[in-house]
Amino acid sequence: MKIAVVIPAFNEEENIASVVNGLNSMAVANKLDVTPVVVNDCSLDNTAAIIANLNCVALNLPVNLGIGGAVQTGIKYAYRNGFDVAFQLDGDGQHPASEIPKLVQAHIANNWDVVIGSRFLTNEGFQSSFARRTGIKYFKHLIRFMCGVRVTDATSGYRLLNRKAMAIVNDYYPHDYPEPEAVVMYVRNNCTVGEVPVVMLERQGGVSSIGTTTSIFYMVKVTLAVVFAYFVSVRKR
């Protein structure tokens, strides 16, 4: 099974090398065929130079696209180059490579099209702040209400996609704060979505894209996006 691991990176010079090297050693240890695909989202720091010398595919965007566009670029690469599954992973070191085999096993065992790594199935590892957990619970109820699927960690960017899900992302992926909306998109396109407990770490460096002032905007935007994603339903292709 050919596995691509898409890592969007914007100004991640401090973390990106350890993330990619960690992936490669995990792959060797677990005898997995893993290709890290780093998408450099027009970083202003040394990210481009660092990833050029790492054992990975380096996709350099000439214009900054934001997280959604960067993730989509990597998934497009994986889809067009015949990878069987694609992971998406945050570039800031929050998502440990060691959990990848667990998601792959869940994908094989349950035949899920999308596997999400969730912090809240066993409540282990970094649990985020109270405000954020409240927001995530809200998304859990919203998504269950909209599509009847239980997703405890809809904001998790730790995901496995098979080729069916990759084909959907190849066509369309939300622009910013894409994760909860993408869950609805997968379900509405008849993908099976499952969750696996993962342990996440606190971010190793850098600053979250969601501050206190943007959080209200985030909630409103994502709620709208989730509701609209439901009504868009199956995209024509």
């Binding site: 996709l59 350099n60 965007l61 000439p62 214009v63 696209l65 566009g69 497009k76 690469y77 622009h175």
Partner: peptide, 17 residues
């Protein structure tokens, strides 16, 4: 236009690779 620019940007990155 934003969608078109995004698609073009992605194609450039994929083509360079």
């Amino acid at each position: 236009q934003q969608e078109q620019t995004k698609n073009l940007t992605q194609e450039i990155a994929l083509l360079k690779q």
